[in-house]
């Protein structure tokens, strides 16, 4: 199975502080992966690099069958290439309705001219309705996103990611601030999504990671410390030292 995303030898430093240090990482086309690590391990910076927000000082990032280098693309181009990102805090457009949020995310041409003349067709309405149902927001479609509860916003954002139809999804702490029931719903969504695409979940919560039941990568000081099943990495003495040991 060839890799969908291949990160190799990436380093980046801020004012002399090495946030990412010779990091290498690969993920296949339909795989669920959890990334854990203590604060400052470089989890968010790693996502920043993949999505084009931060440019690395060294290394390569290639994506897809044709191994396109993501480093020469802008954030928008990377997103169009099929990389979706969910932020730690739910970021939806609060001044607009759930419907509008989903319509914007729907896979379609993104150039200003095409968007200007774009009008909603019945097929689009059905697709939005289907997505809203999947994330449990069908009743909330005409409501402003700003009025939703925290958990609903998380789902709306996940719905928007689904609408984008990405091939790789980067999800930053999806379970933070959720109730138990909401967590279960989220877990189900993520596992479902990973059937057809690659999903990378960055998470602190061991319980949640265990529930995902997938391969785990442990980051420490900007490099991969260990990789394998959760049980495997939790037995690793290095991991216990730097992470759980200090826990």
């Amino acid at each position: 199975m060839s890799a969908l995303l291949e990160v190799s030898g990436v380093s980046v430093s801020f004012d002399g502080f090495r946030a990412i240090n010779n990091l290498s990482f690969t993920i296949g086309p339909a795989e669920l992966r959890a990334i854990i690590g203590p604060n400052g391990a470089g989890k968010t910076t790693f996502m920043d690099i993949v999505t084009g927000k931060t440019r690395p000082d060294a290394g390569t990032v290639s994506f897809g069958e044709k191994s396109v280098s993501l480093l020469s693309l802008t954030e928008a181009e990377i997103a169009r290439a099929g990389v979706g990102r969910k932020f730690q805090r739910p970021t939806v457009f609060e001044d607009q309705t759930v419907h509008e949020n989903l319509i914007m995310a729907l896979k379609a041409h993104r150039s200003p001219w095409r968007v200007l003349v774009w009008r909603e067709a019945a097929a689009d309405r059905d697709k939005v309705a289907a997505l809203a149902e999947e994330v449990g927001l069908l009743d909330a479609l005409p409501r402003k996103a700003g009025e939703l509860s925290h958990g609903q916003k998380q789902w709306l954002e996940i719905g928007m990611l689904l609408a984008q139809e990405p091939r790789l999804l980067l999800v930053d702490e999806p379970a933070a601030g959720m109730t138990l029931a909401e967590r279960e719903h989220t877990t189900r969504l993520l596992v479902d999504m990973a059937r057809t695409r690659a999903v990378v979940v960055v998470e602190h919560d061991m319980d949640f990671v265990r529930r995902l039941n997938c391969k785990v990568t442990v980051l420490h000081e900007g490099a991969v410390l260990a990789e394998g099943s959760l049980d495997h990495v939790t037995k690793n003495s290095d991991v216990i030292d730097v992470y759980l040991g200090r826990g």
């Binding site: 927000k53 802008t74 979706g84 457009f93 607009q96 995310a105 774009w118 009008r119 909603e120």
Partner: peptide, 25 residues
């Protein structure tokens, strides 16, 4: 009124997020 309006209002409120949706801000 249409999607274009949605996109530019989204840019007004959070342009970084719009970039991650694949729109060239």
């Amino acid at each position: 009124s249409g999607k274009f309006g949605s996109v530019i209002r989204a840019i007004r409120d959070d342009e970084q997020r719009v970039r991650f949706l694949g729109y060239s801000v």
